[in-house]
Amino acid sequence: MRTLRLLSSAPPTALFGMTVIALYALVVILAPWIAPHGQTEIVGLEFEPWGGDYVLGTDNLGRDMLSRMIYGIRNSVTIALLTTLLSFALGSVLGLLAATLGGWIDQVLSRLVDVLMAIPAILFALLLLTITGTGIAQMIAIIAVLEATRVFRLTRATAMNVSVMDFVEAARLRGEGTGWIIRREILPNITSPLIAEFGLRFCFVFLAISALSFLGLGIQPPTADLGAMVRDNAALITFGDMVPLLPAAAIALLTIAVNFVVDWMLHRASGLKS
């Protein structure tokens, strides 16, 4: 009932966003059942056009484009989600600790994050990838750590705002331990900014991973991936064919959707405050 009322107050952009997110979730879960072919299966000639046997044609190796798209969404979204979760696990825990404990722990962590953030993330990722070599695991770890610095900053800042409140001081004066203060006093008061941040971080991670894959440095063939698919079929664009743009559009659509929903959440949160 409350959920329904909440949804009815959502602007069309947010409703559109939620619908798209739900659709993507379905694709991710149901990929093996809805894809007509396997993701690495060569079904026809190279670059067969749209329509006909294959709804979206075939790619540079003669694989079914539609199936590649479906699996690409599944792979890219899952990896991005995993990376975001990892960066949150790292960043938010450390951010909460820094804000609650303060002192030298906060100093050390904050200065470390300052230094890491002094290098634009994508450059750092490229440097680390050179060292570790390309691979899904390496990429997840690298992006997760780099994005965790942003999560750390936000978590620390919002948690700081809460931790100076009198009710937190009251808990400290009562003699509560750090664990209680974080879990019961601070965390419940910063969940909404953290959820919004999760959405934004997911977008950044999703874009960063697809960018690396586009550069040939991310998810490696033959695994289907949206960024790499753009690169593989880029040659078609010179012939005015839009097929290579489809995977990129799939990325854009999901990030737009998430951004719309987050924007609405943030707008609501700020509106309620004032």
Binding site: L207, G240, L245, A248, T255, I256
Partner: peptide
């Protein structure tokens, strides 16, 4: 707001290829 939200959601290469398609090929 909608335009900029969309724009920051586009991968750079997506924007690039759209521009190529529109202003270089078509």
């Amino acid at each position: 707001n909608v335009a900029t939200l969309s724009s920051i959601s586009f991968p750079e290469y997506f924007v690039a290829y759209i521009l190529i398609l529109l202003l270089s090929i078509n």
